[in-house]
């Protein structure tokens, strides 16, 4: 969406900006269906294997999970800041807050990687044929839980990476884009970024906080 720069279809930039925002909302709605579907799978499974899931979720690292939540929420403040500055025409400030957003995003990914490696060591990562040496109750459904955990978190991570790449691209083209389109892009990517954060805010309690 932010890809389309000054489409011939619109007569005024204002109308185009509104159209961009609108399109972004539709896209977010579409994405919501994607995660919604997988969350639905998770809940259906959790209803039938509640105990196993609860026990398995104890094995996830609560500290790291919480830390990541904090990091991402902070990035959710940096992002609107960028939009604020951009609309105020304070471009360098906007630039810096975008950079901050990207860094926080990268931080999140770093922590997540650390978490994954830990889980592989503990043998609770039933993926890529890694040995699954979980000793808790109802091993089978615990494995199911970890399967879902990796599916959901990696999908979320992919979306985050996507966001980071787009922002990075924007920063590359920053000087070349005129101000109107800069503003439009910041606005559009901002919506997307918030969405990705909100998804995490859902995933965190769902995965980490089963009766804790």
């Amino acid at each position: 969406m932010s890809a389309s720069n000054e489409s011939v279809a619109f007569d005024t930039p204002a109308r185009e900006r509104r159209a961009d925002a609108f399109a972004m909302w539709i896209f977010v709605g579409s994405e919501a269906m994607l995660f919604g579907a997988i969350l639905l799978v998770f809940f259906m499974a959790r209803i039938s294997y509640g105990a196993a899931f609860a026990a398995a979720s104890q094995r996830l690292s609560l500290p790291l999970g919480t830390l990541n939540t904090v990091v991402l929420i902070t990035s959710s403040f940096a992002m609107p800041l960028a939009h604020l500055y951009a609309s105020a025409g304070r471009w360098r400030a906007a630039l810096w807050s975008l950079a901050a957003t990207v860094l926080l995003g990268l931080g999140f990914l770093g922590i997540k990687t650390a978490e994954y490696t830990m889980e592989f060591r503990e043998g609770i990562a039933p993926v890529l044929g890694a040995p699954f040496t979980y000793d808790g109750p109802d091993r089978v459904h615990a494995e199911f839980f970890f399967g879902l955990y990796f599916a959901m978190t990696s999908l979320h991570a992919l979306h985050l990476i996507g966001g980071i790449v787009v922002i990075a691209g924007m920063l590359m083209l920053w000087t070349r884009a005129n101000e109107a389109s800069r503003l439009r892009r910041v606005h559009a990517i901002g919506l997307y970024w918030h969405f990705v954060d909100i998804v995490w805010v859902f995933l965190f309690p769902v995965l980490y906080l089963i009766n804790r």
Partner: peptide
């Protein structure tokens, strides 16, 4: 590819 058994009964999937 990754062996995540969400639909595989043997791994608790459905």
């Amino acid at each position: 590819v990754f062996g995540i058994g969400i639909f595989n009964p043997a791994l608790g999937g459905d």
